[in-house]
Design a protein around this nucleic acid. Structure first.
Length: 187
DNA sequence: CGCTGGATGCCT
DNA sequence: GGCATCCAGCGC
């Protein structure tokens, strides 16, 4: 059962925690190319008051998605070569997004290996730039509705949630969340 | 192991 | 110039 827009239309840290243990499913490349994994690591990015967030400087063409409808994908390019997948949260007009940082692979592992050109399963989806490659997600999926049938998220399992500071953001906030003890968490 | 640097392009 | 990254190559 897909998560619907009411799931995403909440405060961002709550969504970031609730996404842990859910399954992210991609049918990019067709139904026979289905790839999926359990979300084991997320980060919350808030609106104007959050210096680590793209939305902290207000609306720009790039960050427009973060202010839009909850349950959409916010995808952007980083370091010239990696796409990062976020899920838009909060009501329309309020900025917020959850970065998906790591998955535990479930379906389509051979397809993921082919896309990523690597052998060890651990390397397939641990890291935000790696999991988008494995699931075939690119900039063309920015603003995609995640309650539809190309890329979506479903409840799957549960685990102990632990918090920490976000990777590469040195403020005091504990807005990174991960499943305690899961070997596919990054770092 | 851990550390360093390069690839590469869009952002403000 | 900086960046919500990754990997190869090096030295210990």
């Amino acid at each position: 059962m897909k998560l619907d827009s009411s799931f995403y239309e909440r405060d961002t840290p709550a969504v970031a925690k609730a996404l842990l243990g859910c399954q992210l499913i991609s049918r990019v490349g067709g139904e026979s190319a289905t790839t999926s994994g359990v979300i084991v690591e997320t980060e919350a990015y808030l609106g104007g008051g959050d210096p680590g967030s793209h939305a902290s400087k207000g609306r720009t063409p790039r960050t427009e998605t973060m202010f839009g409808e909850p349950g959409r994908a916010y995808v952007y390019l980083i370091y010239g070569m990696y796409y990062l997948l976020n899920v838009v949260t909060e009501p329309v007009g309020t900025a917020g997004a959850v970065l998906i940082r790591a998955l535990e692979p479930v379906e389509g592992i051979d397809i993921m290996k082919e896309r990523r050109k690597c052998q060890p399963v651990k390397n397939l989806t641990t890291g935000p730039g790696k999991l988008t490659q494995a699931l075939g997600i690119t900039i063309e999926h920015n603003t995609l509705d995640l309650t539809q049938d190309l890329i979506w998220i479903e409840p799957y399992t549960t685990g102990d949630v632990q918090g920490s500071s976000r990777i590469g953001v040195s403020d005091g906030q504990a807005l990174r969340y991960f499943i305690k003890g899961n070997p596919f968490v990054s770092r």
